[in-house]
Design a protein around this nucleic acid. Structure first.
Length: 544
RNA sequence: GUCCCCAUAGCUUAACGGAUAAAGCAACAGCCUUCGAAGCUGUUGAUGGGGGUUCGAUUCCCUCUGGGGACACCA
């Protein structure tokens, strides 16, 4: 990656100074830029122009620098701008075509093993629109990790133990009894959604519970297990419709059955991080984080969510992961410090557990915001949205935005705007590219076609070439800063550069050498776009 | 009451502390006898209020206002 290379180069020449490699606001100003001169001028109390002259002189003398850049110039008040060497851009084009669907991939991470957990919605209802944000983001981040050379497991944690699923079981059981004509009190604390009654009807129609229908507790247990199994299956199907495939569905139940929860509790106790108060056992969170201590074992003897999650975290490390990353909704913000404290109490290093929070998706209805609540049965199903809008538009809609963006999801607006979703702007570029090669008809032969790439000299051709260089750099950055939306921004930028090229430069034409050169560029753009879209889990259609 | 997040163009969003704040949609004006006009070019238009730090602040700090979220022996 040129950007990293340039940074290291400058850092070598001028140590002890803080600087950054930036992208200039206008392409005309160059491909990279550095603010090094601001720092140097201040430190040495010198005029920026003089400092810049010296810096440029030093860098230009370096052969490797001039291989990458043909022009390096000072821009007041204190920037130095770098312009790609056209020869480098053409060489890079050859590299893209050679690497094909591997362009952008690297083994920088050397196989470091990451467990990426996301969505993990309680199996007490179907996936909703709110889950689509974490799903789109997590899946794409995982793809980027893999491309950057990490070994990644995408994981979904199933809370199939505890109060919530027990309430689900009770809800289904009562609907079941209702169907049999019994009068039941269906409290507000039960799950109100229609899907509960659907499951109950299924149980009745298949006569699955006839042996236990007079034993309420047994009925609840059965309904719970039956409903959870069905809802997990439905979550899998919904996720797959969104193009998300998890590598592992991890059941909380197995943590209890295997005795791991108890083991980890005693490990924590032996390490001295647990104390008793008010009949409960508490974790000394405050030894690690500026937060209150939290309960591990409730006074009724059952373990808390936190305790289970600490055992789960331990289980992940036991499976050999070097790093674990959880993507949680912002409503779990308060739990971040507690889980991290638990991991550290077990002796895991601070930065081995990372938790990314995304702001919640709010549903707007009748001009009123409301959180989607599974309990109240008040939500929009992911499946319904996908049926209306389509996978690609849904994914891109979420991927364009920073995780900290608070989103108001107006369903009618989403439907209306789906037609002008920016994803089609990008997909239209892939369709146009396909059209070009179809029109050309012949085989694409890189050896012959790309030997004329020095004919690519127009501003639009060079701009497109310089965009293509960026993909490996974006992937490297996203794999470190998790700013997945910059990949989506890049895709838009790339499509724009292509559309401009396409409009200004006719590809199929009389001059066969120029035609070859432009076909070569078109192929490079096609590969880069396809790879970018593939990372986002979005199709690159040949026709629209 | 305490803590976290957010406020940028009419709308949805970008901008590792850097240059004239960038895109899409909407509006307006142009561009199809050649590869797909779902495109291209141009115009209008924005950093919630007040302080501070800095050579430089949308970005960092304080404060006010307005929104979202969390403050359980629920998960």
């Amino acid at each position: 990656m040129v950007k990293d290379w340039l940074y290291k180069k400058i850092a070598e020449e001028f140590h002890g100074v803080d600087f950054d490699i930036l992208t200039p606001p206008e392409p005309e100003l160059g491909d990279y830029s550095t603010n090094l001169v601001f720092a140097l001028a201040k430190r040495d109390k010198q005029n920026p122009a003089d400092v810049a002259k010296e810096v440029i002189g030093k860098l230009s003398a370096d052969r490797a620098v001039s291989d990458f850049f043909q022009k390096i110039e000072f821009a007041p008040p204190g920037f130095i701008n770098f312009f790609f060497n056209e020869r480098f851009l053409r060489d890079n084009l050859g590299e893209i075509i050679k690497r094909g669907d591997k362009y952008g991939a690297s083994n920088l991470a050397k196989g470091e093993n990451i467990n990426l957990e996301f969505v993990s919605a309680n199996p007490t209802g179907p996936l909703t629109v709110g889950n689509a944000r974490a799903a789109s983001f997590g899946d794409t981040l995982g793809n980027v990790f893999k491309f950057a050379g990490y070994s990644v497991t995408k994981e979904y944690y199933i809370n199939d133990v505890g109060v919530q699923v027990r309430i689900l079981g009770e809800s289904v059981a009562k609907r079941f009894l209702e169907l049999k004509g019994e009068k039941v009190i269906f409290g507000e604390n039960l799950y109100q959604g229609d899907y509960v009654a659907d499951i109950a009807r299924e149980i009745q129609e298949k006569k699955l519970a006839s042996a236990i229908e007079n034993d309420f507790e047994a009925l609840v247990d059965f309904c719970r297990d039956y409903a959870v199994a069905g809802l997990i299956k439905s979550a899998k199907e919904s996720a797959e419709k969104l193009g998300v495939k998890f590598d592992n569905w991890f059941s909380e139940k197995q943590l209890h059955d295997s005795g791991e929860v108890k083991n980890i509790l005693s490990v924590l106790e032996k390490a001295g991080y647990v104390y008793e108060k008010d009949g409960a056992k508490w974790l000394k969170v405050s030894e690690f984080e500026k937060t209150d201590d939290a309960v591990l074992v409730k006074s009724d003897g059952s373990t808390s969510y936190l305790m289970n999650d600490i055992a789960y975290t331990n289980n992940k490390f036991k499976r050999g992961f070097d790093k674990i990353i959880n993507i949680w909704g912002a409503d779990h913000h308060g739990d971040v410090a507690r889980l991290k404290a638990g991991a550290r109490a077990l002796g895991f290093e601070k930065d081995k557990v990372e938790i990314l929070l995304h702001q919640l998706v709010l549903i707007k209805k009748n001009d009123e915001l409301q959180r989607m609540s599974k309990r109240k049965g008040d939500f929009m199903l992911l499946d319904d949205l996908l049926a209306e809008v389509g996978k690609d538009a849904v994914r891109f809609f979420f991927l364009l935005k920073d995780l900290n963006t608070h989103m108001e999801f107006d369903i009618d607006l989403a439907k209306e705007q789906s037609r002008k979703n920016p994803v089609f702007y990008i997909q239209y570029a892939t369709a146009r590219l396909n059209g070009v090669f179809q029109k050309y008809g012949g085989e694409f032969e890189p050896e012959n076609f790309c030997q004329h790439s020095d004919l690519l000299t127009s501003p639009d051709e060079l701009r497109l070439l310089s965009r293509l260089v960026r993909l490996p750099e974006i992937i490297g950055e996203v794999s470190k800063n998790y700013q997945v939306h910059s990949l989506a921004q890049y895709a838009t930028d790339l499509a724009h550069a292509f559309h401009r090229f396409y409009e200004s430069s006719h590809i199929i034409q009389e001059d066969k050498k120029l035609e070859n050169a432009r076909l070569c560029l078109a192929r490079g753009a096609q590969i880069t776009l396809k790879n970018t879209l593939a990372l986002m889990g979005i199709a690159a259609p040949e026709k629209m």
